[in-house]
């Protein structure tokens, strides 16, 4: 496993630079939206990674609740933190793209609202982890992750119905996508998937090592007779 880490880093670096070159140089400029459309190559892969990581967080939380394995909990922390970062990228690049194209920064559209609500739920998850005392954090955080996942379909249906009641701005029709664009998009998707996995993996290892250090320090302070900490 440890040898895989540098290999994955090199692959990620290569894919990211290829993706960057593709997005800025080889991909053709979009006809109606112009240059700003190039943000698409970062916006959509980030969203994909964020949703994947939130799913990993749910899976890790369930594994923790069933098996009480601390490694699953470390994975849950790592995926939630990195997922929130990618979700923030989505929520920041979205309005930058929307303003020149739709003429508005924000609309209560289904996908936008669902992303925002997910972001809110996971930020509250991270705050809960930060504020609770260490012994019980894993359990109550895992419970919150499960309840948050139960919420997602309900949010989906409520906003779906909310949208049908309220007028919405028209957002670009269908139309075919240039194969060169599609090619660049898939390179970026692969690059971001590797990047997300790499960052999450590093954060996971950091979390595991941090806990080991804490445990060792606690043990040492118990073993040293004269020391008062």
């Amino acid at each position: 496993m440890k040898r895989l880490f540098p290999i994955l880093s090199i692959v990620t670096a290569a894919l990211l630079s290829w993706g960057l070159y593709g997005a800025l140089v080889t991909a053709p400029t979009e006809k109606t939206m112009g240059e700003v459309q190039r943000i698409f190559y970062y916006h959509v892969p980030s969203a994909w990674i964020a949703f994947c990581l939130f799913f990993v967080n749910l899976a890790a939380s369930i594994v923790y609740l069933v098996r009480r394995s601390l490694k699953a909990d470390a994975l849950a922390v790592a995926s939630a933190e990195v997922g929130v970062v990618f979700c923030t990228i989505v929520l920041v690049t979205g309005p930058i793209w929307a303003r020149p194209v739709w003429g508005i920064w924000w609309t209560w559209d289904l996908r936008l609202t669902l992303t925002l609500v997910l972001w809110l739920i996971y930020v509250s998850y991270l705050i809960l982890r930060r504020f609770s005392s260490s012994g019980q954090t894993p359990k109550i955080a895992a419970v919150l992750a499960v309840l948050g996942a139960l919420d997602v379909p309900l949010v989906y249906f409520s906003i779906w119905f909310f949208r049908t009641q309220h007028p919405q701005p028209v957002m670009g029709g269908g139309g075919s996508i240039d194969p060169r664009m599609l090619h660049v998009f898939f390179v970026n998707l692969a690059a971001f998937s590797c990047f997300g996995a790499l960052v999450c993996w590093s954060r996971y290892r950091l979390e595991v090592v941090r806990r080991e250090v804490e445990e060792t320090q606690a043990l040492e302070s118990l073993l040293e007779p004269g020391s008062v900490r």
Partner: peptide, 8 residues
């Protein structure tokens, strides 16, 4: 904790 989950 309550507000984000209660949105729907």
């Amino acid at each position: 904790l309550l507000f984000p989950i209660s949105i729907p």
